[in-house]
Structure formats: structure tokens, C-alpha cells
Design a protein around this nucleic acid. Structure first.
Lengths: 346, 346
DNA sequence: AATATAAACCAAAACGTTTCGGATGTTCAA
DNA sequence: TTGAACATCCGAAACGTTTTGGTTTATATT
């Protein structure tokens, strides 16, 4: 009671019980070379004094930081990324649920010349035990750096050399096959894929899935690639819908694109739920609240987080390195733009 | 060259230059009791060897962690929060821009019995120098705890006792005055406020702003309070629109509510841009992409982040404690649901 | 009785900083 | 010539852990 507000340390517990610091330390970390009764006394004293280990001291001596780092790859104009921001929230939660003593350290390293230097500083200061690398690129210098420095990491998205590092990714191939097939099943004969640029690895996978389904049905492939903004997909959709033999089925790489197809259709007096049908991807909030509600391919961010954490965990414990990976399934959520009967005569 | 892959430390620099550790330390931290030439030599050696200070060691001795903590107040069913997730992204970015050596540590402490214990553990382990407290509540135990333990913090949102702690908040009073006034200026005679429950402090401020404008114009106040979900606001809007003397102007506490008003209006054959007009709040992505696009009150998340960081900074440097605060302005973004001429005869 | 084994404990070193309290030599005013 | 003031440097302690390499005592084995 006289120790007042002083922070409890191993030493203070030790002299409180007239015992050595070593024993207190070993008792609290569960070593078995301490007598059951002694351990209990120590535990009680620790609880009483409200002992919480000083992490800096522990980290200094062990060299481990018990922290995971995420260096945000966003740049300034790029802050509205729905996936990234929600992923962060989910990952933080999942990490805590998995182990409340693991810290998540969030910093910032936008693509560019200073990107690698930022990673290097992070590694050197030993702030984190492992990284989660977001927005992985085909040819990703971050991956090379981390591999070379032997820092554990998991990428979100595959890269060129996915064989020799950990990654998780969405199964875009299966997902876009599924979406395309569902339109085929409804009787669509002309189905188009509105895709994003090929610099992203996923874009290729979307093409593969789409073409798998198209080929199975003996239909003709029709793919349009575009940047995603508020204007271009809208124009593309407008042109497509005005053409002869316009497509009736639209599989879109993003809900944002799907939404612009809806807009273009409305403009032309085409019913976006019956005359044509549309499936997007990512299940953005606007998709289930809009008018019409937009069908979409959805993945669970919890699945993403869980998968990453599982890999991280085995990585941090394991002695030998085995590259691990995990594909996350897409689920087709059928909403108004694809859950009604298709009337090809529209 | 022979030191190969060994990590550079103060000691290694010191013996490399045949000089004391103290001097190296003081040179690198910019003290002025070291000769200019010596300092330069040290700096060069440090750069050459790629010296990066070991943060654990520094933290151990200084007792400072150079880290800001955010304990997410979300619970599991509650992960879709648009503000929170985007705020996190922005804040991380802004913090880095302000000082790349400050860590942001994200963990998790949902409202409930364990909430305070989580904070306490965080404080005791000295992981962070300061907290950002999100989703502040009127009567907030976290605030009490942090005040008592004298840990610096800023709340996002005011509390009962806002006088004696740091906070930032949106200026909901001014914002809702502005929105209401803009509808008045368009000629609306019956304007209703669709508000969120009063347990949130902001709800009161919205009422004040709304009533200020209504009173100035000599109109009649009409307020409806509801939970925000996919059903209730829709029903409320439906009932309101069907009634005699239905309101023509709708000021909504959230874009989600605004959106449901649009939906209800469409259902009843009422034009949500001309027969009635609607202003939401928060500028969710669905608002500028939807059909119609929804007018909204917007704040800049960068403003939020900057304000918090500024307060944090003076808090961490300052010796005497002066409670600081900052109101963030709302900006009225006029889109289709309020940027056309109003035709009251509809 | 001697020796091996096991159980329980501990002193001291180490981790890499920062900082306190000088120490040394040089310069300048009186 | 004295001593004060300054510029520059440094040794050693401290921060709170973990871990190494023991020692001591009791028990089991030969």
C-alpha cells in the first residue's frame, strides 16, 4: 500500500516476496522450473500490484516486437479506397481477437521512390516482426526487399513470383466464371466483361474465369478494358448499349462499373433488370442500397483477415519456411440487376 | 566492410571512430556540445553503416514510446462503419506526413465491460504516449480513466465534460442550420428533420441548428427521431409522404436516411428532386453515384486528422495542460436532390 | 555410501539507448 | 597570473526485461 502510484516491475515484485527477479520472470512466463506454490504467490502478487510487463524492455532483450506492420500503399488522391479502409478495420479486429498482445502498427508508404526506404527504416528499427503487404503488384520491389532481408510477410494479392512467398488472394477466376455462368443460365447469349486494366494481376484472372464459362457455353467472348472513374465506364456502356447486337449480360470488374452501366441503361430507356442484367464485384455499400440494387460478387473481409493471420502465425512460430497461401472464395449475391426473369426481346 | 550484416549501433559507430558512445548519441540527436567536425564525421559514419536507432532501447530509457494509440470501438456486427474505416486511413496518412517517426498503433476495445481494462493494459504497458478516442459518448468512462491516469488524449466528438479535455467535433449545429436554410431559401414551407437517437451528442446539435433556421423563418418545427437501418427510415418517410400537408423539405442526419426518403418518394410517384427535396449528411460514396445523386453535408477527413494531430502535438510537447478543441465545418454539397428549382405544386 | 538425477532457485550479463555529473583543455578578461 | 567561462568530450548508471549457466537441496539409483 505504501508503494503508491509507482509502476510495478519484476524487481518490485521480487523484493516484495523476497525472491529473485529471475524466478518471478520465469514464473510469470510459465516456465516449469518453479514450484507450484511459489508460482501462485508470484501470480497473486503480480495481480495485486497490477503488474504489466514493460514492452520496451522485453523487446530490447528478445529482439522481437510482437507487432505486425502495415504500410499503407495509398497516396493522397487515393484515399477513398473502400477495400483498404474496411480491410484495416477488420484486420485490426481479427488480430486482436487472435492475440490481444500483438500490436498492429499502421504507417504509410505510397508507391514511389521513397517506398522502399520506408520499408527499410521500418525493418531496421525493428518495430515489427512481420508485414502485411497490400495492393501487391506483379513485379513488386517490396516483396524482393522483404525476401532479401528475411522479414516475414504476407501479400494481399499474388505477384510474379508467388511461389516463394506467402500470399492470399481472391479467387477471381472462379468468381467470374460463376457470375458469367449465372447469366448464361438465365438465357443470355451476348455477355460482355467490363474489365480493369491488365497491370493488375487480378484482371487476367477475371478474363480467365469469364472465358472459361463463355467457352463452355459456346458463346462469343467480348471484353472491354477500362480505367475506373466516374466517366469512362459510363461512356463505354452507352456505346455498347446503342450498338447493334448489344450485349444483354454485363459482368463488371467492380460495382462502380456496374453502377455506370445501370445509369447508361436508364438513360436509354433500357430496364437494367430485365432488358439487360448486370453483375458487379466487391459489394460496395451503394450496391445494396441503390435503385436498383446491384448483384455482386462478394468476399468476406473476415476471411481475408483470418487467412492472413493464420499464415502470419505459422510464420512467426515456425522454424523452417514453407510458402503458404490461400484463395478466398467469391460468393454471388443476386440482387435486382440479375434476380428476375430475363426477357431477351426487350 | 568486414562488419558484414551486423546491425549498426551507437557502440559500433563509436568504436569505428574511436570515440565515446555518449558523443555519438549526442551528436546524432543534435545536442550542441559536440564539435561541428566531429558531428559531421559521426553523421557520415552513421549514414555509411546504415544506422537506425533501436526503438525499444530508446523507449526503455526515455519512457516515451513515440506512438499514438487508437482502440477501435467497433464490435463485430458493426464493421461496416464508413466513417471509422476511412478516418483510420486518413489519420494514418496524416500522422505519417506530420512526423514519420510517430507510430500509429491500432487495437480494439469494443464498448462493454472489458473496454476499460483494455485501455488500462495499454496504458500500463506504455505502448503509446497518447490516445485518440473515437465515438465519444456523453458520459464516457474512457475519458474519465485517461484523465485520472494523466494520459494525453483527444476525443472525436464532445462529451459531458468537454471543458476539461481535448476534443474535436463536427459543427453539426452550423451545418444543419445551413442545410435547413438552403431549403428555406428554395421556398420550402414544411421542412422536417429526420434525426438519429438522442443518446448521441451530435443529435442534439443537429436539432439546435435545424431549429435555429426554422425559427428565423417563422416556420413550424417537425422532428422525427429513428434508428438507422435499412427499414425504419424508409417506413417513416413513407408515412410522412402519404400524410396531409406532407413535408417537402427533408434534412437527414445521414445519407443512408436520405437515401431511404428517395426510395419512398419514388415508390409513391413523387419526384425526389422537384416535388420534394432532400439533404443528407456524411457524403457516403453512394451519394454521388446514386440516382438521383444526393445532396449532403460533407466534412473533410483530412481536416479531422489535422486538427487531432495539431492538438496531440502541443499536448505532447507542452508542459502545462490547456484543454484544446476544434470545430470542423460542414460544407453543403448540392446535388440533384436539392439543386433544381422547387415546384411546391407537385 | 557414493553417485546420478531432478526440482527449485538465483547472480550476473546482456539488449542499445539516454543522461547525469564530471573531466579536460582552451580562451578570455582582469 | 589567476581564475572564470566555455567548448568538447566521456565514464558509468539506469531503464526492465530475458536468458545463460550455474548452485543448492532433496530424492532416486547403484
Amino acid at each position: 500500500m505504501e508503494k503508491k502510484k509507482k509502476k510495478a516491475t519484476l524487481k518490485s515484485i521480487a523484493q516484495h516476496l523476497n525472491i529473485s527477479v529471475t524466478t518471478v520472470s520465469r514464473a510469470l512466463s510459465g516456465y516449469n522450473d518453479v514450484n507450484a506454490q511459489t508460482r501462485q504467490q508470484i501470480q497473486e502478487a503480480a495481480d495485486l500490484l497490477g503488474y504489466v510487463p514493460n514492452l520496451a524492455a522485453r523487446r530490447l532483450v528478445t529482439g522481437k516486437s510482437d507487432a505486425i506492420g502495415i504500410l499503407l500503399p495509398v497516396s493522397y488522391g487515393d484515399m477513398r479506397d473502400h477495400f483498404l479502409s474496411h480491410f484495416l478495420l477488420h484486420f485490426g479486429q481479427s488480430l486482436y481477437a487472435h492475440n490481444p498482445n500483438l500490436d498492429l502498427i499502421v504507417s504509410y508508404a505510397p508507391e514511389g521512390e521513397k517506398e522502399l526506404a520506408t520499408y527499410q527504416r521500418f525493418i531496421d528499427s525493428q518495430r515489427v516482426d512481420a508485414f502485411v503487404v497490400l495492393r501487391s503488384r506483379m513485379d513488386d520491389a517490396r516483396v524482393e526487399l522483404l525476401k532479401e532481408q528475411k522479414v516475414p510477410f504476407v501479400t494481399h494479392g499474388r505477384t510474379q513470383c508467388s511461389d516463394d512467398h506467402n500470399w492470399i488472394d481472391t479467387d477471381a477466376r472462379a468468381g467470374f466464371d460463376l457470375a458469367t455462368q449465372s447469366l448464361i443460365d438465365k438465357g443470355h447469349q451476348r455477355i460482355t466483361l467490363l474489365n480493369l486494366p491488365e497491370r493488375m494481376f487480378t484482371s487476367h484472372l477475371r478474363v480467365e474465369g469469364y472465358e472459361d464459362a463463355i467457352a463452355r457455353a459456346g458463346l462469343e467472348s467480348s471484353i472491354h478494358t477500362m480505367e475506373m472513374n466516374d466517366e469512362i465506364p459510363y461512356q463505354v456502356a452507352l456505346d455498347l448499349l446503342k450498338a447493334d447486337k448489344a450485349p444483354t449480360g454485363f459482368v463488371c470488374a467492380s460495382d462502380v462499373i456496374a453502377h455506370q452501366v445501370v445509369k447508361a441503361a436508364k438513360e436509354l430507356g433500357i430496364d437494367p433488370c430485365k432488358d439487360i442484367q448486370i453483375i458487379g464485384c466487391d459489394d460496395l455499400p451503394l450496391s445494396h442500397l441503390g435503385d436498383p440494387t446491384i448483384s455482386t460478387l462478394r468476399t468476406s473481409l473476415d476471411d481475408h483477415s483470418q487467412a492472413i493471420i493464420k499464415i502470419l502465425q505459422s510464420e512467426l512460430n515456425g522454424q523452417i519456411f514453407i510458402p503458404r497461401n490461400k484463395l478466398i472464395n467469391y460468393e454471388l449475391v443476386e440482387r435486382q440487376t440479375s434476380n428476375q426473369a430475363f426477357s431477351p426481346d426487350g
